[in-house]
Design a protein around this nucleic acid. Sequence first.
RNA 1: GGGGAGAUACCCAAGCGGUCAACGGGAUCAGACUGUAAAUCUGACGGCUGAAGCCUUCGAAGGUUCGAAUCCUUCUCUCCCCA
Length: 406
Amino acid sequence: MTFLKTFEERGFFKQTTHPEELKNRVESGRICAYIGFDPTADSLHVGHLIPLMGLAHLQRSGQRVIALMGGGTAMIGDPSGKTEMRKMLTEQQLEANVVKIKPQMERFLDFEGDSELINNSEWLRNLNYIDFLRDIGRHFSVNRMLSFETYKARLETGLSFLEFNYQLLQAYDFLELNKRYDCVLQMGGDDQWANILAGVGLIRRVHQNEAFGWTYPLLTTASGRKMGKTEKGAVWLDPEKTSPYEYYQYWINCEDADVEKFLTLFTFLPMDEVQSLGRLQGAEIREAKSRLALETASLIHGKEEALKAEKAAKSLFGDGGESEDIPSTQLDAILLQDGMGIFDAFRKSGLCKSNGEARRLMNQGGLYLNNEVVSDPDYRITAQDLLEGTALLRAGKKRYHRLTLQ
RNA sequence: GGGGAGAUACCCAAGCGGUCAACGGGAUCAGACUGUAAAUCUGACGGCUGAAGCCUUCGAAGGUUCGAAUCCUUCUCUCCCCA
């Protein structure tokens, strides 16, 4: 089965430049394709999963893939679809980010063969301005660039010349990859459409080569929220930033209407299995959700961590039972000798940001110790509250934290 | 370079000398309903507090006043129009 079929079947498709020619090209032999990732943070997040899965499907179907780290482009910052300029990152930060992101990529892609992980700073950093303008800049029409939808918001609020150049650099990346690796396909989220088109056009003008662009849909949840956001912010792939437990929770808490779509896009489960999970109704949908959570967590954190997260979830939300794997904080036994204020405990655990917030939680009846509502603001946790060495704090219905003795 | 508009809490956005910790909306949190779902309803939503109260906040620094987010001065930044 070609990856085109897979993409179509699994929803990795929003638009493409010239579908017929691409199909012919794919059928006539192996191709090389790439996606760029700007290292704007020290970890990838859930928003990067679709492109990662896309590349992975491509590689599994036998194509050569290139994951391009935008060490050079991230110095500029892509204004596409953004309402304001990002804060500038130093070269050192970007380098450090690349180092941390690399192993995350390796969970999806195999760079042992001829597939590559490259950094575009390799060719962007030493560009000569005048040469670049004369060789590349002359192929770009400002009129046309301004007409793109992606800049619309920025034309209202302001777009610096720096950012306006981003598209040229991304187009130049594609040109360079085309030249070096005969890379003929660039993919990306649909917000990248204009940038991708620019690259395709540039390759045609400069080398008279045919190149293709392909975009993935930009996901929102069924009720319209942004994918990959929680109250705490982005859901990261780095376990230090988003623990496997939280990661698992993110997926198991998805909306009913999203389960099948998420299984399709974010797991490698065969489609017939996805569909049978998708047929579940009512409370049974939870089975599909737990499968989704287990699969996605396994991909990022490994099977073992995923199973731990599942076990923790079962012990908290299922038939009780104990688990070591609930997020926890260790306490010095001395702290409990005179008892620890209940609000302090909630603050230390990170469940509440301030005493006021903890008090509010209590007033609203959402503050629990060992699954009992606590309503006394002066309550002090002592050793007697520890059951087998742990006290279970709970804020609201589903935020848990354990206190354990050191 | 010239002219104009603006900067308010997580975001948007009122307020334009006292009744302002600051209308309203969104986000968020809690409760009810459920299935760790969505939708809906109710409540909360700067910090310290049982509360009264106190403290910090309306771009920054000064000033006027019994009293300022609101008036004045200087500064910083943003946007728009013209060159």
